[in-house]
Design a protein around this nucleic acid. Structure first.
Length: 223
DNA sequence: TTGCCGATCTTCT
DNA sequence: GAAGATCGGCAAA
């Protein structure tokens, strides 16, 4: 399902207008066998939508300030989903810029480049958790699509069949080597790959703060 | 472009 | 109490 979603268009109609994003980057999350998945340890209040019927939006809040959106893909009871990581804004760029607090002179590439930015551009939050993406009357819906030939924003992709790249998922510490991230090759709206970086605990940081910077070991070289 | 770092809070152990 | 499917600002390369 994940690579099939590349090029599809997620569209959200609100009182402010319509914003649509053509997907350029996604990640697959499986259920029982995938320790990186929110569903790995079974159903909780947060991930309940993942266990429901496919075609619905699973929206979660993370890092204390960001929302991310998934498309539920497995049959009811099998909590499989695809995280929508990035895309290109194709409709409602002005509204998306407003929501993102974008400088008017800034290029649109970063409007939906990253899962939290994508949600912000589309005004997706807790209210959209569980939304039916396939309902004809849904305010948040997924449309079939592909990379448009002749679209200047698609660059070289207009010249050829879209090439799909595969690699490990971004920022996950478990099952970090499984290549379940899919993106459109050479598409500038794809986010930058970041491996998982475990953060020091609060107590460790408190201790570190008492040591002069010059004495601290450089990051990533062990303790 | 890369690397570092803090902000901020929900969820789970 | 700790970790986390992140991002933006800043400095350095």
């Amino acid at each position: 399902m994940a690579p099939a979603l590349l090029g599809c268009v997620l569209e959200h109609s609100t009182a402010d207008g319509v914003v649509a994003v053509s997907l350029s980057e996604v990640e697959a999350y499986m259920a029982a066998d995938d320790p990186a998945s929110h569903a790995y340890r079974g159903m909780t209040a947060r991930n309940a939508v993942m266990f429901g019927p496919p075609g619905h939006a699973y929206v979660y809040f993370t890092y204390g300030m960001h929302f991310c959106v998934n498309v539920v893909c497995g049959p009811p009871g099998l909590a499989e989903a695809v995280l929508l990581r990035a895309g290109r804004v194709t409709v409602g760029e002005e509204l998306a810029r407003e929501r993102r607090g974008f400088d008017p002179a800034r290029a649109p590439r970063d409007l939906a480049r990253g899962p939290a930015r994508l949600c912000q551009a589309l005004a997706i939050d807790r209210a959209q958790n569980g939304a039916d993406l396939c309902g004809p009357a849904s305010e948040l819906r997924m449309r079939a699509g592909r990379v448009d030939a002749g679209d200047p924003a698609a660059g070289d992709l207009a010249e050829q069949q879209p090439q799909i790249n595969v690699g490990p998922r971004v920022g996950v510490s478990k099952a970090a080597d499984i290549p379940w991230r899919f993106w459109l090759a050479r598409d500038p709206t794809v986010s930058v790959y970041r491996p998982s970086v475990p953060r020091a605990s609060r107590s460790a940081r408190r201790e570190t703060a008492q040591v002069p910077a010059a004495v601290r070991a450089p990051r990533g070289q062990g303790s």
